[in-house]
Amino acid sequence: MFWLSFISDFFRALRSGQEPGQVSAGFSIGYLIGLMPFFSLQTVLLFALLFLLNVNLAAGFVAIFIAGFVAWLLDPLIHSLGFWVLVEIPALHGLWESLYNLPIAPLTRFYNTVSMGSILIGIITVWPVFWGMKKLVINYRDRIEARIKKWKIVQAVKSSKLYGWYEKILRIRELT
């Protein structure tokens, strides 16, 4: 129920309400959180950002779910990338050793292959994700929503009693 509520909020945010930048920023932060395999320092900071900044929370939570699933699927690839960066590039060993000996840095668990792979994939892909999401929201609002509304199945659902009740409940919740 908790997740359904977030998905519903997410689709509502796609339609209207917050700016497309806010929705895609929330989605991007959630995407970064979802990629991380462990509860580490950067996860805490990203959660803080998600809550404190005026970004779309629902988009963030949906992104956590989607990115978590994608990261689970790509785990062997992420592990290999992390292993390559941590072990197979001797030029970087000095950097990792210095970080390993700093008091705070180990809390990020950068020395874990999956963690390092996720950080790298996150850094590389966060901007395309942000940009893509923003474009998606704009396009959705301009073109896609109107088309979807014309779909017979959508009209059938909207004309059903159940949907009527759902809308009533939403209105009541907004008023309260």
Binding site: P37, A71, W72, D75, P76, I78, H79, G82, F83, L86, V87, H93, W96, E97, Y100, N101, Y111, N112, T113, V114, S115, G117
Partner: peptide, 16 residues
């Protein structure tokens, strides 16, 4: 081989 989604910890020289 590490279990899925757990990875492998790489231990670097620890100065302390």
């Amino acid at each position: 081989n590490p279990p899925r989604f757990e990875g492998q910890d790489i231990y670097f020289p620890f100065h302390y």
